[in-house]
């Protein structure tokens, strides 16, 4: 565990909690892509099945459980409790265009052809593109609320910090996971355009790229 990995995890947690609190406090999920949140719930579910097979640390287990619980809570708020405020008309990204190719790729390119490993690979690939429905929704409406841009900032920061973590681990631990790194680079690139606007437009509810 290095400082980049830890701050990456905390950024990820911040993003998840920011979104959950925003929906809870405003009693509204307007501007939030339920499809992205469903994909993230699927990502955590398929990745953390190793909760049943291996124990790494109390930190590891706790964070996994928190991520899963928060992502399901978010999905529940969007599709059940505050369903009336969910803007489904603008959340029109076709998720099958992500899930089907990602599913195929995880069967073809993985570390080991076993069920848990394929599901782990699937979750890594899916996470890298899971934010696309949210970015697509913002590009359709042309605007995002300030708090939504904070959410996206911490999501992007998390992945950027993980990239530094992998560089660190490569040099100091000889650790290198090609699948995670390639997917992580793709995921980080998706946020670059957003990062630029977030910083230049004063981190407020700004018009985002079409």
């Amino acid at each position: 565990m290095n400082i980049f990995r830890l701050t990456g995890d905390l950024s990820h947690l911040a993003a998840i909690v920011i979104l959950l609190l925003k929906i809870w406090k405003t009693r509204s999920c307007a501007g939030i892509s339920g499809k992205s949140q469903l994909l993230f719930a699927l990502v955590f579910t398929t990745r953390y099945l190793d909760l049943f097979t291996s124990f790494i640390s109390l930190y590891n287990t706790s964070m996994k459980l928190i991520y899963i619980a928060c992502s399901y809570a978010t999905v529940y708020l969007i599709y059940m409790k505050f369903k009336a405020t969910y803007d489904g008309n603008h959340d029109t990204f076709r998720v099958e265009f992500l899930v089907v190719p990602v599913g195929g790729l995880s069967f073809l390119v993985n570390h080991d052809f076993s069920p848990l490993e394929i599901l782990w690979t699937f979750s890594i690939y899916l996470e890298s593109v899971a934010i696309l429905p949210q970015l697509f929704m913002i590009s359709k409406t042309g605007e995002a609320e300030t708090i939504t841009t904070h959410y996206l900032f911490f999501q992007g920061l998390y992945r950027a910090l993980y990239l530094v973590n992998w560089i660190w681990r490569f040099y100091f631990e000889g650790f290198f996971d090609l699948i995670a790194v390639v997917a992580g680079v793709v995921q980080t690139i998706l946020y670059c355009d957003f990062f630029y606007l977030y910083i230049t437009k004063g981190m407020s509810g700004c018009a985002l790229p079409a």
Partner: peptide
């Protein structure tokens, strides 16, 4: 190693 190394990350 690759096989076990990635499992400690979230």
């Amino acid at each position: 190693g690759n096989e076990s190394g990635h499992k400690d990350e979230l």
